[in-house]
Design a protein around this nucleic acid. Structure first.
Ligand SMILES: [Mn+2]
Ligand SMILES: [Mn+2]
Ligand SMILES: [Zn+2]
Ligand SMILES: [Zn+2]
Lengths: 139, 139
DNA sequence: TAATGTTTTTATAATGATTACAAAAATATG
DNA sequence: CATATTTTTGTAATCATTATAAAAACATTA
């Protein structure tokens, strides 16, 4: 996705494609690393002159409200952001702290009996040790 | 579960059953309300003289480490605690902020292909509006 | 383009949840 | 009972996030 496509995507979802918004969405889409606000800040501060951390908070909150990003709550002390809003699961490694995706089909998620409830979001995530870190420990 | 049973349960899991620990575990087990630290504090401060919020943090962290409680990360700004460590899902209502359980069988959870990964925890939660609040809004 | 009004960004301060720390209290051991 | 160890407490520190108001960017119209 280039800047053009991202602008169009934001626009379609009711988000005015301003420069910093496009850069932040670009970052999310290309990196796919489920970053925290601090990770985005320390990576983009070099690229965007005079970027403020408050702006990142503002923009991400707008993204989540507009449905173009997800806020992931896996660990209590951090929120991670994801531009992939399709149905998928997450694994967080306790050792390297990385968060990775795994595909799941919507129809493979449990379908609990919740009569009269309106369900807006479904989240499935795992915690443990990734294969890379498990190998290192073993060695 | 009375105090006796809770003491035995804690002991079996390597947690010395001191008075405040037993009271806090009693609260979790009987209320089943997935409380935050603040909820526990404001409820128990009447019952336990001179209780400190720091103690609740200490005890809950110990409970989670020892495997007798779960820390639920559903909303980014709060951790909720659960004495039910069996496989089950959670629903959080955006309106009344309550968190309720629903049963799921372990074998009904998706089983992603994660070769070489060690999986310690599985979490499945939903967000939306509960039937009680949905009815109120409709009326 | 210039003038004007609106939106966005910034810097700073405020808030709120959690942790660090050291002293006091409780508990266990001999 | 005396002593050592563990737990709890109160306070201060930390860290992520939000509030606020001024500055900058942007859009609109003349
Ligand atoms: Mn993802
Ligand atoms: Mn539960
Ligand atoms: Zn890892
Ligand atoms: Zn509700």
């Amino acid at each position: 996705m280039d800047q053009q496509q991202i602008s169009a995507y934001l626009l379609k979802n009711g988000v005015r494609p301003l420069q910093k918004r496009v850069k932040i969405m670009s970052y999310l889409v290309s990196k796919r690393n489920h970053p925290t606000v601090d990770m985005i800040y320390s990576d983009l501060i070099h690229e965007i002159n005079g970027l403020s951390k408050t702006t990142i908070y503002n923009v991400l909150n707008l993204f989540v409200q507009s449905g173009v990003a997800l806020a992931l709550n896996i660990e209590g002390n951090e929120i991670r952001y994801d531009a992939d809003t399709s149905t998928h699961g997450h694994f967080k490694c306790k050792v390297c702290t990385g968060v990775i995706d795994f595909r799941i089909k919507k129809e493979d998620l449990p379908n609990p009996m919740l009569e009269g409830f309106r369900i807006d979001e479904q989240h499935f995530y795992l915690k443990g040790v990734c294969s890379f870190c498990a190998n290192k420990i073993e060695a």
